[in-house]
Design a protein around this nucleic acid. Sequence first.
DNA 1: TATAAGATTTACT
DNA 2: GTAAATCTTATAT
Length: 191
Amino acid sequence: MYKLSATYYLNNDVVFLAKDLIGKVLCTEIDGQVAKGIITETEAYNGVHDKACHAYGGRRTDRTEIMFGEGGKAYVYLCYGIHHLFNIVTGPKDDPTAVLIRGVEPLEGKKLFLERRKKTNLKNISSGPGTLTQALAIKTHHTGEELIGETIWIEDHGIDVPENELEIGPRIGIDYAGEDAKLPFRFLWRM
DNA sequence: TATAAGATTTACT
DNA sequence: GTAAATCTTATAT
């Protein structure tokens, strides 16, 4: 088991990273409490060429600025006024690619998952992009956080995901993106 | 300064 | 299965 290094995130193939991150372990230490979850679902956001990406066409705003920096940082933003969505910025400088984490499975600190989500069982406790951030206590102010630091990081536990359990398909909830909404950039581990 | 729309979740019919 | 909740960001006055 080891923590992913900074160079891992500099890979310019965001689709490869989205696939490779399935089975990795997302960890947070917030308020002195450690929680870990196995990543089971991701989506790739392929920079300026991707209509579904916030940085499509080189749009550079205060919000998307972080994606134009080097990979290895967190990009957390609020959707529908309620939900915090967690992205991993990837690729070299000026290449605004990112991987959206859409789902995790509780691994460590399960008690925290239950408390933060106010639930009594672990079923579907962090199966959506907005709910996993709640379970791991990730908030918008974590944007820009180094993923090799002490607050949010990713570990490789050597978990093997069989090819036949990996579902690849079009992304969800981005119908407005036209043709790009159909690209097979979504990866889901069917356990 | 004001308005429109959104990478979703939850509750209710 | 359908609809409401809810507030930030981006774009237009």
